[in-house]
Amino acid sequence: MRYILPLCLFLSGCSSGWVDAPAPPSAVQPVGPPSQEALQKGIGSSVKEARLTQPVEISALRRTDHGPGDYFVCLREAAPVPGRPHYTFSVFFNNDVYEGSRQSVLFEECEQQQYSRLN
């Protein structure tokens, strides 16, 4: 019983009105599509990572709400090597930053896209 009063005083210090001023909200920078130069560099990095043979084809740049970036293109070999699977990759970007690539998944609909050759 004799510890209740000091305990109450100790705990009431946690609920005092002394509160630090809140930090100002951080300015959120909107994410935009990559420039043509950044797109070329990112695709080049992805081709090396996936060990694809040139020439390659890409789809149009599209926005996404999943993956490591907010924008992506689908990437595949223009002339697949016989005896090796023909994989399609998704290459992700935020602004001019290449965020990575992965094998594309079904809901990215890379199979239905129109492709153009990238030299």
Rank of each mutant, 00 (worst) to 15 (best):
I4N: 03
E99K: 08
P25K: 10
S15C: 12
Q54P: 13
F10C: 13
F93T: 08
Q36F: 06
A50K: 12
G100D: 00
R62I: 06
L106Q: 14
Q113E: 05
E108K: 04
A23K: 14
M1Y: 01
P22Y: 03
H86G: 10
A79C: 11
F93I: 04
E99N: 11
P24W: 02
P80V: 07
V97Y: 05
V81H: 13
Q114Y: 07
H66D: 08
V47I: 15
R2Y: 03
L9W: 01
C110N: 08
S101W: 00
A38R: 06
Q103I: 14
D96C: 04
V73L: 11
F93M: 03
I43T: 06
S35T: 13
S12R: 06
G42F: 00
P33R: 02
F72G: 04
Y3N: 05
Y3C: 01
A21W: 02
A60D: 06
I43M: 05
D20G: 12
S35A: 12
E77T: 15
S12C: 07
D65A: 15
A60F: 02
S90Q: 03
S15Q: 08
G67S: 07
L61R: 01
R62W: 01
D96G: 07
C110Y: 07
S16V: 09
D70R: 15
P55L: 12
L5Q: 11
K41F: 00
N94V: 05
E109Q: 14
E37F: 13
S12H: 01
D96N: 14
Y87T: 11
Q40A: 07
T64Y: 03
S59A: 06
L5W: 01
R84A: 14
P33S: 05
G32C: 03
E57S: 15
M1F: 09
V47L: 09
L7K: 09
V47C: 07
M1T: 04
S16Y: 09
R2G: 03
N119F: 14
C74R: 03
D96H: 06
D96M: 05
W18L: 11
A38Q: 03
F10L: 13
E111S: 13
A23M: 13
M1D: 02
S35N: 09
A60K: 09
A79T: 14
T53G: 12
C14W: 11
Q113A: 13
P6I: 04
F10S: 08
P25I: 06
L52D: 10
N94G: 09
Q103E: 11
S16E: 08
P6Q: 09
